[in-house]
Design a protein around this nucleic acid. Sequence first.
DNA 1: CTATTAATATGATGCAGATCATAATTTAAC
DNA 2: GTTAAATTATGATCTGCATCATATTAATAG
Lengths: 193, 193
Amino acid sequence: MDIQELLNRGFRVKKYRKDSIVYEPGMLPKFVYFIKSGEVRMVTVSDDGKEFIQGIFKRDQYFGEPAIIVNRRYLAYTIVSKDAEIIPVGNNDFFNLIRNEPNFSTDLIQTLSNRLFYKSMMLEELANEKAEHRLLTIINYLTNDIEVGETLKITRQELADMTGLRVETVIRGVKILVDRGSIKLNRGKIIKI
Amino acid sequence: MDIQELLNRGFRVKKYRKDSIVYEPGMLPKFVYFIKSGEVRMVTVSDDGKEFIQGIFKRDQYFGEPAIIVNRRYLAYTIVSKDAEIIPVGNNDFFNLIRNEPNFSTDLIQTLSNRLFYKSMMLEELANEKAEHRLLTIINYLTNDIEVGETLKITRQELADMTGLRVETVIRGVKILVDRGSIKLNRGKIIKI
DNA sequence: CTATTAATATGATGCAGATCATAATTTAAC
DNA sequence: GTTAAATTATGATCTGCATCATATTAATAG
């Protein structure tokens, strides 16, 4: 079930500007969102305003299904990180996709399993490991889908928000990893080795 | 796809004694495990031996699918907490279930979504919240499936292993929550209010 | 090119929770 | 009922990271 197929079936694209909010905690889920272009981040926010990035979603990915499937209110915000075109697929249409498109249901199972893997990995890190270990793990994970020599387009703040650390700690941690030779930088940005 | 149905189809039950290990990190996944009786816990262990409980699985539940589905080595141990009877369903049989049993595939999607919900909740807690908040969240989550007045059959150590805290911290934290009136005890055990 | 704004950097201080030690209590085993 | 093992309890100390303050550098806008 790709974007083109959804368009063929008459689903409409909605445009979202950077920083707009697709949904927020407490809302009842009504749609699953398929991304045609742009980027969003799913974040939970603590009482004192600290963001934790639960996931980042880009072109050709979808988000928002678990809440629909288990029929519970959202726990997180989803915020547009880069201007985006998104196709909201309603509740019933979504369940029809699952029922009638074996390929989609297989893809969904794969997608959910992948996210579980990521979250299990991060839970272990946050529960048991210290700053540098957490950083190295997330960096290795993120460099998985780029080529050797390419740079990771991510800020220290984003690394902080993915690892539950603070920017200052990330900055110091990254330095330590560089000194140790665990990672390399190019003009301040982490590159895959 | 319930246990009886699997038995009818000729799948065999395997007995596991308490403390035996169903699989450990690094192993290639070959089976999905359906629990007929007993209980297992899925844990990751840090370099210095600290356990983190990724999940607890009981009668009529299954575990081990994500690794099969994404075809990656296990990240965690699964250890038998109470003598168990388990039906290992091989790789191919499992994929046949997904393909040929729409009900099973729907159930799997539900199950995966529920686990994602739990893990997202815990990630937020571990990333952003302090001891007492974490404890209250996990206690509320656990008391979801018992009746008012019933006691939670869980030790402080287990609470520690689910929240990434240390026993002493859990003991002190539980006391604080009791003082605040957030939770109640009965002979040392937490009861649902 | 210059002005803003965002990102990275660095030191000083504080504190929540880990760690260590040791004891009291409850539960299980015989 | 007695012993052993597990669980809960409590105080003292240590430490990694948060927090706060303030620069420096890099990226972006006009």
